[in-house]
Every structure is written in structure tokens, then in C-alpha cells.
């Protein structure tokens, strides 16, 4: 599903250049649930942003579902993001003046799905994350866990090839974190490919594979026995 080859990225900070990713190689198959771990500054968020086409690599190859991702202009990137990817952010990034349902329906709006179908689909995904009753509430009427579940529903709504989660539990307490992870595991059980960036060991072990990043290189890439989050809920 995802292939990356010799990926480099550096940031210019005034006169200095900060080499963040130093030639990464790895691949993710369909249906995997991968945790990318590393301390802050290890380059894990940069990697996720490049995978998410929110940022561009300096050099190297990136293939997503057989499509080479390169020379993207903004319009093309937007179309690929909409078609291939679903994002889950640490700070949820819901639009605060739109209701939960409208937030979930937004990616479908950009897919030019008719309004009625959008709303039906949004309700369907909201009930999948257990928030059907909250469909018409604004984000600030929801708890942190609920907000993240709305964000997950939104990421799912476009039926993307890959879900990218950047510290999805970073702003949540551990009980809510496990609930969110439980949801992510269930979505993965349905066959969806998911990438989770985290720095928490227990969250990482709820995935099926852990990729360790340190100073811009992969130091470890191992399969793990998945810890089911449901036992903590």
C-alpha cells in the first residue's frame, strides 16, 4: 500500500539546515496497523506529513497504492489527499462552527457527493463511533474523546486507502485513549490500513507493528503481538 525509498527531508533554519529524515526505506501492506515511534525530534511527524502529502520530501520515492506521489501541485495533492487519505490529528482539528455531522460530511463535500448522501453517510460513520445522538452538536459541546471519535468518523467518511493518525491520543487521558485505540483497532479489523504516530509505548503495543525512528533513521522495525485495548475499557 505504501512504499517509500530513500526519503530525505531537511528544514532550513536561517543559515543552518536541519536534516530531519535521512534516507528512510520501508513499506506497509494493506490492512496493517503500524505505530511509528520515536522521541520528539526523531522525525516521526515529518514522515507522517510527507506520507499525508501535507509536506513534500526533498528527495526519494513515495508510492501510494501504486501511484507515484511526486511533482504535486496543490490541486493534485488536494485530490489525492481526498481520495487516498484520512487524517486524525492530536488536536482533533474539527471546524468549530460546524456540527459533528457537518464535520464528518465535509470530505464528502469535496468529493462532490450530493448533500443527502453525505448526510446519510455521515450519520452512518457517526453511529459507528457511537455518536449518533451527538450528530447535531457543535464540537465545543463534546468531550475530548468524543471530539476525537468525530475526527475518526470524518477520516473514515471519505473511505480512504490509508488512515494517518498523528498522536491521536496525545490530548486524552488514558481511559479515553484506550477507547479511541479500541475504535482504531476495530477499524483495522475491518481491513483498513492505519498508521499511528505516537511516543507512548502502551499505545504503540496496541498496533501490530512498531517502527522506531531515531534522529531521522529507522533503528528498529518489528512485528508485535497486539494488545487489545478493549480489555482496558
Amino acid at each position: 500500500m505504501i512504499e517509500i525509498n530513500n526519503l530525505h527531508k531537511s528544514y532550513k533554519m536561517g543559515a543552518n539546515s536541519l536534516h530531519v529524515l535521512k534516507g528512510l526505506n520501508f513499506s506497509i501492506k494493506e490492512g496493517e496497523l503500524v505505530a511509528i515511534m520515536g522521541s520528539s525530534g526523531s522525525g516521526k511527524s515529518t514522515l507522517l506529513n510527507i506520507l499525508g502529502m501535507l509536506d513534500e520530501a526533498d528527495s526519494g520515492e513515495y508510492t501510494l497504492d501504486g501511484v507515484p506521489i511526486k511533482n504535486l501541485n496543490e490541486t493534485k495533492a488536494a485530490k489525492y489527499r481526498n481520495k487516498f487519505l484520512g487524517f486524525i490529528f492530536q488536536s482533533f482539528n474539527l471546524i468549530n462552527y460546524k456540527s459533528a455531522m457537518e464535520n464528518v460530511a465535509l470530505p464528502l463535500y469535496y468529493q462532490k457527493v450530493p448533500r443527502k448522501q453525505r448526510e446519510e453517510k455521515a450519520i452512518k460513520y457517526l453511529s459507528q463511533v457511537g455518536l449518533k445522538e451527538w450528530a447535531h452538536h457543535l464540537p465545543n459541546e463534546l468531550s475530548g474523546g468524543q471530539k476525537q471519535r468525530v475526527a475518526i468518523a470524518r477520516a473514515m467518511a471519505a473511505e480512504p486507502k490509508v488512515l494517518l493518525a498523528d498522536e491521536p491520543t496525545g490530548a486524552l487521558d488514558s481511559k479515553t485513549s484506550y477507547e479511541v485505540m479500541d475504535l482504531i483497532q476495530k477499524i483495522n479489523d475491518d481491513g483498513n490500513t492505519i498508521l499511528v504516530v505516537t511516543h507512548e509505548e502502551d499505545i504503540a503495543h496496541m498496533c501490530k507493528r512498531i517502527v522506531h525512528l531515531k534522529d531521522g533513521v529507522i533503528v528498529e522495525d518489528k512485528k508485535v503481538d497486539q494488545v487489545r485495548a478493549s480489555q482496558y475499557v
Partner: peptide, 16 residues
């Protein structure tokens, strides 16, 4: 700005 960023992440083209 932030809202527009979210919209772009969700697939909004610059034109839209």
C-alpha cells in the same frame, strides 16, 4: 487560516 488548513487536509483544492 486553520479552518482552511483543515479543509485542505480534507481535500479542498486551492481553487475551491
Amino acid at each position: 487560516t486553520k479552518e482552511l488548513g483543515i479543509r485542505k487536509a480534507l481535500g479542498a483544492t486551492p481553487k475551491s
